[in-house]
Design a protein around this nucleic acid. Structure first.
Lengths: 232, 232
DNA sequence: AACCGGAGGATCGTTGAACGATTCCGCAAT
DNA sequence: ATTGCGGAATCGTTCAACGATCCTCCGGTT
C-alpha cells in the first residue's frame, strides 16, 4: 500500500474526537473507498491501518464490520478485509434486481395521487441532476440519478423495499467510481428520468414502466460493456 | 485438465469451507430463535450466553452483529440485544415485499423451459409439504411452504433476489412460531402452491401470477388478523 | 525448467481483562 | 402512588497476548 494513502489516513486522525470511535473510523474509510483512495480489490490490513489511525485492532474490526454491512468491504476468513470488487456478473445481477424492484413498484402502483414524499424526492433529484449537469459535476449527476430511482421505489411505501434499493445503489457506486469518462454514463439518463416522471404524473403508470424498463436495459448494457473493458 | 473437472471441484469447495467461531455461534442462536427457544422480545445477555457457550464476549458480540444484520435481533444502546419483535406493520410490509418480488419474478419470466434448479426446488417443497401435512407436522409444513416460495423466486436466477427473499422469509418465521394453531396458517396453502406449480408448468405464467397474488393477499390477511389477536 | 515441500514471517481469530458509562432495581422519603 | 437516590448489574470500548492460518521464499527433486 502506498505511503500516500497512509498519510491521508493520518490526516483524518485528527478528526477522531467526537462520537463513537468505530463509527468515525468507518466514516473515514468510507469516503476513502467511495472516492477511490482504496481501489476495489485492495486489501485493508488491520495492523497497518490500525496504527495509521492510532486505534486498536478490535476497534478497527468493528469499523470494518460496519462497512461490510454496507457492502463496501468483503471479509475472507484468515485473509482479511478487501474493498469489494464487483464482477460483470454482479453488475448484471444488480440490474436484474433493479428491474425487478423498480418495474414492480410502478406496476403495483395504485391510482393517483401518489405518495407525496416519493414524488417530491424524484422532483428534487431531477432538479439536482439538472444543476449538476449544467456545472459538469458528473459524479453529482450520478448521485442525483440514483436519488431519482430511490424516490421512484419509495412510491411502494415499503421500508424494506427502500432498504433493499439503498443497498443495490450502494453497490452500484463501486462500479461508477472506477469508470473513466463518467459523463457518458450519467448525462444521457437525466432527460429519460425527467420523461419517466412526466409520464408518471400524467397518470400513465404502465407507460412509465415501459420507459423505465428501456432505461434500465440501456443503462445495463452500456455500463456492463464499459465495465468489462475497464476490467480487462 | 478439462474445465469440467475444475468446475466440479469448485462446487465442492463450499462444502469444506471453514467457518469462524462467530458464524457457528450465530448459527446456534439462529436456530434457537427460529424454533422459538428464545421468544421475541427476550433479552440475550452477553455474559450469560457467552459463558453458556464457552466463548468470549467479543466473539459473541460478533455473532450478535451477524444476526442483527439478518433482522433477527435488535440492538438497544447500553441495554443489549433482544429477539426481534415484529409489529403488525412489519408483517404487512413483509407481505408487500413478497408480493413485489414474487409476482415480479413470475411476470418477468421468459418463455419455458424454466430454470431446472428452481422448478425442482418447488417440486421438492410440495412433496415435503404433502408428507409433513400427512403426518401432522405443521411446523415442517410451514417450512416446506417457505421453500416453495424460495424456489419460485429462484426462477429469476438472481443471487441477490434469492438473498432478499431468504431474509424476508427468515423474518416471517418470527411471526409463525409465536402463532398458536399453526395448522390453520399452513395447511390451506399447500394445495394452492400445488395449483400455482401446475399452472406454471402448463406455461401459463400470467395465470400463475394471478393465483400467487391471491395467495399472498389471503395469507397476509389471515396472518395479520391472527397476529394482531396474538399480540393483544 | 517446472514442480513440490518445508521454514519463517506476516497476518488474522479469539480470548481475557480492565475501566468508564449507562441502565436497572430496591428502598427510603415525600 | 410518586419521586429521588445509591448500589449492583450490564454494556461499550479498548488493549495486549497467544495460537492458528496463510503467504512467501528458497532449496531440493524430477
Amino acid at each position: 500500500m502506498s505511503d500516500n494513502v497512509l498519510d491521508e489516513l493520518d490526516e483524518g486522525r485528527k478528526l477522531l474526537g467526537r462520537t463513537s470511535t468505530a463509527e468515525r473510523v468507518a466514516g473515514i474509510l468510507r469516503s476513502r473507498i467511495i472516492e477511490g483512495g482504496f481501489q476495489p480489490g485492495a486489501r485493508l490490513a488491520e495492523e497497518e491501518i490500525g496504527t495509521a489511525l492510532g486505534i486498536s485492532r478490535n476497534t478497527l474490526r468493528e469499523a470494518f464490520r460496519l462497512l461490510t454491512h454496507e457492502q463496501l468491504l468483503v471479509h475472507e476468513l484468515n485473509r482479511g478485509m478487501f474493498v469489494r470488487k464487483l464482477t460483470v456478473e454482479d453488475l448484471e445481477d444488480l440490474y436484474r434486481v433493479r428491474r425487478l424492484i423498480e418495474c414492480a413498484t410502478l406496476r403495483q402502483l395504485s391510482a393517483p395521487p401518489y405518495p407525496q414524499r416519493a414524488v417530491q424526492a424524484m422532483e428534487e433529484a431531477v432538479a439536482a441532476g439538472r444543476s449538476a449537469a449544467h456545472e459538469h459535476r458528473w459524479r453529482d449527476l450520478g448521485t442525483a440519478n440514483m436519488h431519482f430511482h430511490q424516490g421512484l421505489v419509495a412510491l411502494a411505501e415499503s421500508p424494506r423495499t427502500d432498504e433493499m434499493m439503498r443497498g443495490v445503489l450502494a453497490e452500484l457506486r463501486l462500479v461508477f467510481h472506477v469508470m473513466e469518462n463518467p459523463r457518458r454514463f450519467h448525462e444521457p439518463y437525466l432527460p429519460r428520468n425527467e420523461q419517466i416522471l412526466r409520464t408518471l404524473r400524467s397518470g400513465d403508470a404502465p407507460g412509465a414502466e415501459r420507459l423505465l424498463a428501456g432505461y434500465l436495459d440501456d443503462s445495463r448494457r452500456q455500463l456492463a460493456e464499459g465495465y468489462a473493458r475497464q476490467l480487462g
